[in-house]
Design a protein around this nucleic acid. Structure first.
Length: 639
RNA sequence: GCCGGAUUAGCUCAGCAGGAAGAGCGACGCACUCGUAAUGCGUAGGUCGCCGGUUCAAAUCCGGCAUCCGGCUCCA
């Protein structure tokens, strides 16, 4: 009789099974439903295929689509099925990589020619055939040499390149149908497990993300264990498109970008400009409260300044060409820091003055390659909510903590509670010494750890003058955009010979911290529009209340109400058109105005108002002063 | 910049085997005066992104450019 071993299940219960039992057999023992849903498993917390047997006492877990790891495994297998389909349809195809991503998967192919959207239909059709065939995914482990020989015989040089970079002696090779792939696994047991699959898009993508290497064809798709979930996914995508700030920006009449003016240059309409004012006022007040001072600096400066700062050598590809003014070359500023440095250097500074915190809503212009512009989120001219802090080395950590505090406080006020934090380290092109880089990076890391924020390291993503902490927030489609940034800089002060007089009557070099909270007003408002789907909280809404008379005879009363509102500092307007009240309400809803104040015979008679909130609830017989009290309270609390 | 797609009225879009530019919404006018998401009727809007080519004839076919969209690379 075979040897018995113990399998510990996730709920802590133990199951006695014969040595060599596979995970799939265990799943069957637990229940037919689980066996049906099982796509992979875990042995002692390590992900494995369902066909793997257990040979000793171990903790095991059956993975289904609903497991945290489920969708990735499922979609990764779907990407292999897509590769098989592409291989069958295009026998000369060479394969790149094909991972699962957040809500789907992709695979990169070199087909010798490009693909268009029309090709996806037949690939998807072929995939469905493969799924119907219910082929097995099989796994073989072999030496790297063997694997290289295998892929040489298949003419797959991209795979060979990948194998050569893998550490260790052996690699795993998976096969489904006639498609053989280098892969860590695990995979679903058979292609038939895929219940719903859809190819979404095709795009060019450089091999290994390097623009000097060949461009492959990347096909995006997604897969679910239930066609209903696929429908929901498509529905969610459609919802996201409705939140798109480019669409809402136009509908709400906030801004436009006009070809005749120039790509990537934003024209702010009255309502958008008003929102900017509201945000900027809040920003200024918050900074003044926290010991910042405001500075203002021009948009162009002599080119030599940028040579001193290092921008001319390290940032020129993002700068516009110089213009000649009376034999002197000037450039439009891509950053505000040199200007602030010159203000610092306008006289001798004492250690008693530090830290100096200078803030500016500074408009900068950067050349962005065509093809990267994106509504308000990526533009060529934008206003940074910039500040530079000049401090002594022993003040750095405290200052960074203060910055993190104001960052989190402001982001929360704007309703952002989810963000990704990155610590970006030294890039390939940089100025300064490695000791300085290390000191600066340590300062940032310590501050993050002090506040207890979880973060990821973004290697090589720092700016040329220093490492940085980046905080990214997501748009409606889940794309992350960098907003807040905190950059420690030991280098630019050195280049400009920035000093202060110390207690010891000697010159010392201050450290400079560059920081932005919103990042740029443009990008931030873009994110804000998508975050609220255009339905801004009342403190931010360009129009806070609209007074709607039911019939023309109520216009005078409406005017007196709006006058009172304006007097109380409420951003209010009236809709005096000879339209039905239903029409006016509908238009107000479409414009996402927080409060509609409806006045008719009843209100005129009793000197009251009827309030309809954006949510659709209405309240009648309210006195204007009562409503005003509530409204001003809501506004001051920034809810 | 690279790969793919797109560009027709203010907006959303139809028209495309090449043969006199259309709809809905919006705007404007008139009538209606209405109680919580679209009152009715009428009018005006377009060098069909720009430049060139093919053709008896181009919104429609071809080429170049611009811009936009989805990605890649790059970035606040």
């Amino acid at each position: 009789m075979a040897e018995k071993i113990k399998a510990t299940l996730p709920d802590g219960s133990k199951m006695e099974v014969e040595k060599g039992t596979t995970l799939f057999e265990i799943a069957k023992k637990i229940g037919p439903r689980l066996a049906k849903d099982a796509i992979a498993g875990k042995i002692d917390k390590k992900l494995v295929d369902l066909g793997v047997s257990i040979l000793e006492d171990s903790e095991i877990e059956i993975i289904t689509f609903s497991s945290p790891e489920g969708p990735d495994i499922y979609r990764h297998s779907a990407s292999h099925i897509m590769a098989q389909a592409v291989g069958e349809l295009y026998p000369k195809a060479k394969f790149g990589i094909g991972p699962a991503i957040e809500e789907g998967f992709y695979y990169d192919f070199d087909l010798g020619n490009s693909l268009s959207l029309e090709n996806l239909g037949k690939i998807e059709k072929k995939m469905k055939e493969i799924i119907k065939e219910n082929n097995h995914f099989t796994c073989k482990e072999m030496s790297k040499e063997e694997a290289i020989e295998l892929f040489k015989s298949l003419n797959q040089e991209y795979k060979i390149e990948l194998i050569e970079e893998i550490e260790g002696k052996t690699v795993k090779i998976y096969q489904n149908g006639n498609f053989v792939d280098l892969c860590r696994g695990p995979h679903i047991p058979t292609t038939g497990k895929i219940k719903a699959v859809k190819l979404l898009n095709v795009a060019g993508a450089y091999w290994r993300g390097d623009e000097n290497r060949p461009m492959l064809q990347r096909i995006y798709g997604t897969a679910f264990d239930d066609p209903k979930k696929l429908d929901e996914f498509i529905h969610r995508q459609e919802e996201a498109i409705r939140r798109d700030h480019r669409k809402l920006g136009n509908e709400l009449d906030l801004f436009s970008i006009n070809d005749d003016f120039g790509a990537g240059l934003v024209l702010w309409h009255p309502k958008g400009a008003l929102m900017r004012k509201i945000i900027e006022d809040f920003w200024r007040d918050e900074h003044l409260k926290r010991g910042y001072e405001m500075v203002m600096t021009p948009h162009v400066a002599k080119v030599d300044l940028w040579k001193t700062s290092g921008h001319w050598d390290f940032y020129r590809e993002n700068m516009y060409s110089p213009m000649k003014v009376e034999e002197q070359e000037y450039v439009i500023k891509p950053m505000n820091c040199p200007a602030h440095i010159l203000i610092y250097k306008s006289r001798t500074r004492s250690y008693r003055e530090l830290p100096l915190r200078w803030a500016e809503l500074g408009t900068v212009y950067r050349y962005e390659r065509s093809g990267v512009l994106h509504g308000l989120l990526r533009v060529r001219g934008f206003t940074q909510d910039d500040a530079h802090i000049f401090c002594s080395p022993d003040q750095i950590e405290d200052e960074i903590l203060k910055i993190l505090d104001v960052v989190l406080c402001m982001l929360r006020t704007f309703g952002f509670n989810e963000y990704e934090i990155y610590l970006s380290t030294r890039p390939d092109k940089y100025v300064g010494t490695s000791e300085n880089w290390e000191r600066a990076t340590d300062a940032l890391r310590l501050a993050l750890e002090d506040v207890g924020l979880s973060y990821q390291i973004d290697p090589g993503e720092g700016v040329f003058y220093g490492p940085k902490i980046d905080i990214k927030i997501k748009d409606a489609l889940g794309r992350a955009w960098q907003c807040s940034t905190i950059q420690v800089d030991f280098n630019i002060p050195e280049r400009f010979d920035v000093t202060y007089m110390g207690k010891d009557n000697r010159e010392h070099q201050p450290i400079m911290i560059h920081r932005a909270i919103l990042g740029s007003i443009e990008r931030f408002i873009g994110c804000l529009i998508e975050h609220y789907a255009g339905a801004f909280p009342v403190w931010l809404a360009p129009v806070q209340a609209s007074v709607l008379p039911i019939a023309d005879r109520h216009n005078d009363y409406a005017n007196t109400i709006v006058f009172e509102l304006l007097k109380a500092g409420i951003r209010a307007e009236t809709d005096l058109r000879s339209e039905s009240i239903n029409k006016k309400i509908r238009d107000g809803q479409v414009k996402k105005i927080p409060y509609m104040i409806i006045v008719g015979d009843n209100e005129v008679e009793t000197n009251t108002v009827a309030i309809r909130g954006r949510g659709g609830k209405d309240r009648r017989d309210i006195s204007l002063s009562e409503f005003l009290d509530e409204l001003t309270k809501e506004i001051s609390q920034r809810l």
